[in-house]
């Protein structure tokens, strides 16, 4: 049985006269990874700041395992681990000193636990170096380490993939899936790039101008419906003939061919291309519906 780890009820934030968050409702279950997607300035960080208690709500409530962040701050905060925007740690202290500093702010986080977390995020080699010398990727990992020291029920990561290369993103995806599956942690992960976090999420909510405008499960989408597949080939004309023969819809984008088709059909199509002596350089599937929806909803200005 999964329990609700995080619940937002009609959360509102007004700064001055401007309503930045206009009543957000959402809930995340234990063991679930929730993607919080929206363009820059949509209100992701503001929402997160309210969830973790850095900003006061002007309306509504936030509950972590049923405890309100407003009326039961300590009990609620005990179950949250977070990175808010950049992982800013003390640059003049080592990774180890930084983690011990945060460990002292909880009851029962032992040195052994700190060591365990360090090896989980793979920072053993640099843990005695000053954080000022760390690369962004190392700081992100240390940021994750400080967020999970006390085994929180809810982990919130605000744009953790910012500035990371694909390998770094894959690594973060692996930790997050492990935390969700093994330790039943609820994870809320925000990004302005759908493509970067889509693969690690169970569910995705799209926020724009302070409102969650759409929410849906990721896996249903990728299994049930058609994908868009980008084909990179040398002989575009020949390839186009193959697709037409199979009655597939083709979109052209510069010299790439984008084709809508079912996942199971990909090997067949590739086989036909090769039989016709088309030289194939790349076959890249993208989840059609979500991507389309995101582009549509946000005006297409944020997908890169």
């Amino acid at each position: 049985m999964s329990q609700v780890a995080l619940e937002l009820k009609d959360v509102k934030k007004k700064i001055g006269k401007k309503e930045i968050i206009k009543g957000i409702n959402l809930s995340i279950n234990q063991g679930e990874v929730y993607g919080f997607i929206g363009p820059n300035g949509a209100g992701k960080t503001t929402t997160i700041r309210m969830i973790v208690g850095l900003m006061r709500l002007t309306g509504g409530d936030v509950k972590i395992l049923g405890k309100s962040i407003q009326s039961d701050y300590k009990l609620a905060a005990k179950n949250i681990g977070a990175i808010v925007e950049n992982p800013e740690l003390y640059p003049f202290m080592t990774g180890w000193q930084n983690l011990m500093h945060y460990a002292r702010m909880y009851q029962g986080v032992t040195k052994e636990r700190v060591e365990e977390v360090i090896s989980l995020v793979g920072l053993e080699k640099v843990v005695n170096d000053k954080v000022g010398k760390y690369s962004l990727g190392m700081r992100q990992r240390l940021g994750i380490a400080q967020a999970i020291l006390h085994k929180p029920a809810l982990l919130i990561l605000d744009e953790p993939t910012n500035g990371l290369d694909p390998a770094g993103i894959r690594e973060i995806r692996d930790y997050i899936r492990e935390l969700a599956v093994k330790d039943n942690v609820a994870v809320m992960i925000s990004s302005h790039l759908l493509s970067e976090i889509e693969l690690m999420c169970d569910r995705i909510g799209i926020i724009q101008q302070g409102e969650v405008i759409s929410e849906r499960a990721v896996h249903d989408e990728s299994t049930d419906s058609q994908l868009k597949v980008i084909f990179e080939v040398k002989q575009n004309d020949k390839a186009q003939e193959v697709f037409e023969e199979k009655e597939l819809t083709i979109e052209k984008e510069s010299n790439k061919l984008i084709v809508k088709l079912d996942r199971e059909d990909i090997p067949n199509v590739v086989k036909s291309l090769i039989e016709k002596d088309v030289e194939v350089y790349g076959v890249t599937p993208i989840k059609a519906t979500l991507e389309d929806q995101f582009l549509e909803l946000t005006g297409g200005n944020v997908i890169e």
């Binding site: 973790v52 208690g53 850095l54 701050y73 300590k74 009990l75 905060a77 005990k78 949250i80 977070a82 990175i83 808010v84 925007e85 950049n86 800013e88 740690l89 003390y90 640059p91 945060y102 702010m105 909880y106 400080q146």
Partner: peptide
């Protein structure tokens, strides 16, 4: 100034 206030004030401490 360092931005570390965020990670300081999200702990279960008033």
């Amino acid at each position: 100034k360092w931005g570390t206030i965020k990670l300081l004030l999200i702990r279960p401490i008033s």
